[in-house]
């Protein structure tokens, strides 16, 4: 029974007898395969440059124009992740094993070749290659998540506290180069005064798989600026070492903003107090005096005094209102933020 697989196969083989045999074996097992034939390395190069999406390349190790290691490295480079299976006429086991590290997927000995063993190797290596690509893709995706994250992230060794990896946001935000980071440990991005608390925190998260610190930490950039950060940690294995991946979210701006808001609130409260107490006092006095005049309670002479008094109270009121509008000007949030910036650079 033939397998209905639409494999596209390149056979690189200068010996026409061997090629016919291989072609026959393939046809034995696979229904309508698409088989391309190259006699030399040069021909193989031409085919691989003009055609893509081969499922597998079967490669004889000795061609008239190239052989051995040189041949392998050229074909592997041209193959673009297509699995390459070596067909070799003699048992050079050592070299074949070595070739695996050059990117060869499998090797087969021509003398022992059968249609069944060839078919098994072809299907097995095609599937294996697909899985390898999938894993590489998923690793790349995780690596991208780390390296392309807009939030600063780093990986450190939980025993030595050395930086093992940093992302570009980290490099940008802290001002150290990647090389500098990889020669530093994580105590070096902290002001000395906070090291005691930091060591406690590091010991604490050692045995926590995932942890989000509620309180903030102070980090120090290369230019010695201090920033407030929120820390999120997760245990990972990094290049075979126990490590933590840390997300250090810089919340300095947010903290400053809250402080500015708080100040603004205080000012507004003060204004509200003035409004209700100071303003009301001359107003109620005026209302009372007007009431006296209206009810004709006082003498002519007294009324004249009352009118002067009303005028004084209105002037007092006017001053209070000017004072309020002056204070309201001060409350503009931008001013507060500017003040905070000065505070931060000190």
């Amino acid at each position: 029974m033939k397998h209905a697989l639409h494999y596209k196969i390149l056979v690189v083989e200068d010996n026409s007898g061997d090629f016919l045999l291989v072609e026959e074996y393939i046809n034995d097992q696979i229904e309508s395969p698409e088989i391309y034939h190259a006699n030399t390395c040069k021909e193989a190069r031409e085919v691989l440059n003009s055609q893509t999406d081969f499922d597998v390349i079967l490669l004889d190790l000795t061609l008239p124009d190239k052989d051995g290691e040189e041949l392998i490295s050229e074909i592997v480079e041209l193959s673009q992740n297509t699995p390459v299976i070596i067909l070799t006429g003699y048992c050079n086991l050592e070299f074949c094993i070595k070739s695996i590290s050059f990117g060869i997927s499998d090797y087969l000995l021509k003398d022992e070749l059968t249609s069944a063993s060839l078919f098994k190797s072809i299907t097995y290596n095609i599937e294996k290659q697909r899985n390898i690509l999938k894993i590489e893709e998923s690793e790349r995706r995780y690596s991208d998540l780390f390296h392309l994250s807009p939030l600063p992230m780093y990986v450190y060794d939980i025993e030595t506290l050395k930086f093992l990896d940093v992302n570009s946001a980290m490099i940008e935000n802290y001002g150290y180069s990647e090389e500098e980071f990889l020669n530093m440990d994580i105590t070096e991005i902290r002001p000395k005064s906070t090291l005691k608390r930091f060591k406690k925190a590091v010991n604490f998260i050692k045995n926590q798989d995932n942890y989000r610190f509620k309180e903030r930490f102070t980090h120090q950039k290369k230019n010695e600026d201090l920033i407030d950060v929120e820390i999120l940690s997760k245990s990972i294995e990094f290049q075979g070492r126990k490590a933590k991946v840390i997300l250090a979210n810089d919340v300095t701006e947010r903290t400053l903003y809250y402080k500015a808001l708080q100040k603004q609130n205080e000012k507004l409260k003060e204004i509200a107090w003035i409004q209700s107490h100071k303003v009301r006092s001359p107003v109620s006095r005026i209302l009372g005096m007007v009431d006296l005049i209206k009810h004709k309670i006082c003498s002519e002479k007294e009324n004249k005094i009352l009118i002067d008094e009303i005028q004084d109270s209105v002037k007092e009121l006017d001053n209070i209102i000017r004072d309020i509008s002056g204070k309201t000007e001060e409350v503009k949030l931008n001013n507060q933020l500017k003040n905070n910036e000065e505070f931060r650079s000190n």
């Binding site: 006092s281 109620s284 006095r285 009372g288 005096m289 009431d291 006296l292 009810h295 309670i297 006082c298 008094e309 109270s313």
Partner: peptide
């Protein structure tokens, strides 16, 4: 503590 308030209140109470 405001004399004018005292004056107003006195007069109002009498009236």
């Amino acid at each position: 503590d405001d004399k004018m308030v005292l004056f107003i209140h006195e007069r109002m109470m009498k009236h």
